[in-house]
Simulated assay, not measured.
Amino acid sequence: MLFTTTTQYIALAVALVAGWLFGLASHPGGRKWKERYVTERDAHAVTNKRVSELERDHDTATKRAAELERDHGTTSTRIAELERDHGTAATRITELERERDAANARIAELKRENDELERENSRLSPPLAGDPPLAGDRYVKDDRLAPGHPRDRGFI
């Protein structure tokens, strides 16, 4: 038998309580992944906004070019004058398409990072198996919070 005296049992109890307190103090509580997720969500929103602005600019430029073509015809002198005054519409469209492609690549990257963060979240907070949660002095079935729920604190 490992423990034979009262002092040994008291030392065991103190060690267990100290270990439990140290474990609670050192637990991160999911703060890191939540901060990462918020940062990536905000960056994704900014990227989506920029993409919609670029698409709107592209649509406006296309409509304007169609109006100019309809109103003034396609004479080479008028086209040369427009290109000289405002630059070529094709160059601007190419620039907008290049920016749209870069924004789409950034969106894809952010989606991959978001998926990675969600996988990490599900790995770090697996669903509890077994006992249903308590409500007062009685058990309540199907009363669990989903992982990532605002009231979910990540501990039992």
Rank of each mutant, 00 (worst) to 15 (best):
T47L: 03
T47Q: 10
R56T: 13
P150H: 08
M1W: 03
G29W: 01
E67K: 00
Q8R: 02
K49Y: 12
E120F: 06
E95I: 00
H149P: 01
D57C: 01
A129P: 00
T77Y: 08
D57P: 00
L145A: 03
F3T: 04
T62I: 00
E81A: 11
D42K: 13
K49M: 09
A65F: 07
A61C: 02
D57E: 13
A43V: 14
Q8W: 01
I107L: 14
L54S: 12
L82R: 07
H149D: 14
K63N: 13
P147N: 05
H149I: 07
D152H: 06
K63D: 05
L117D: 15
T5N: 02
R151L: 11
G30S: 02
G136R: 07
A13Q: 15
A135C: 07
L96K: 02
K34S: 10
E97W: 10
T74R: 10
A103P: 02
L21T: 14
P150G: 09
L134H: 12
G30Q: 03
R64Q: 15
E81R: 08
D85V: 04
E53T: 14
A25M: 03
L12I: 06
A43L: 10
K34H: 14
A89N: 05
Q8F: 06
L21K: 14
A135H: 14
D142W: 12
L24Y: 05
E99T: 13
E35A: 02
E99F: 02
L110K: 03
R106Q: 14
D42L: 15
H72R: 11
W20E: 07
Y139N: 05
E53P: 04
R56H: 07
H27W: 15
A108V: 05
E113N: 08
R70E: 12
A15M: 06
P28F: 06
E95N: 05
D152A: 07
D57M: 04
W33N: 08
T75F: 10
A65Y: 03
R41M: 15
A108C: 04
E113D: 06
S26Q: 07
R144P: 01
A102D: 08
L68G: 00
L12P: 00
R144F: 15
E116S: 09
E116V: 09
G87W: 09
E83W: 01
P28W: 05
T60V: 00
V51L: 12
R31H: 09
G130P: 05
H72Q: 15
E81Q: 15
K34Q: 13
K49N: 08
E81G: 06
A43M: 11
R119L: 09
R123V: 04
A146Y: 11
F155D: 06
T60E: 00
R106H: 09
S52T: 07
R153T: 07
R41Y: 14
T60R: 00
D42M: 08
S76A: 08
R151I: 03
M1V: 05
D142N: 10
I79W: 01
G19M: 10
Q8K: 13
R106A: 04
V14C: 11
T77D: 10
K111D: 15
T62Q: 06
G30D: 04
H149G: 05
N114S: 13
H86L: 05
T7I: 03
A15F: 13
R56S: 11
L145Q: 04
H58N: 15
H58P: 00
D143V: 09
K32R: 15
E118W: 11
R123N: 09
D131W: 05
R144Y: 01
N104L: 13
D85C: 03
T7K: 07
K63L: 10
E69K: 12
D71I: 11
Y9T: 04
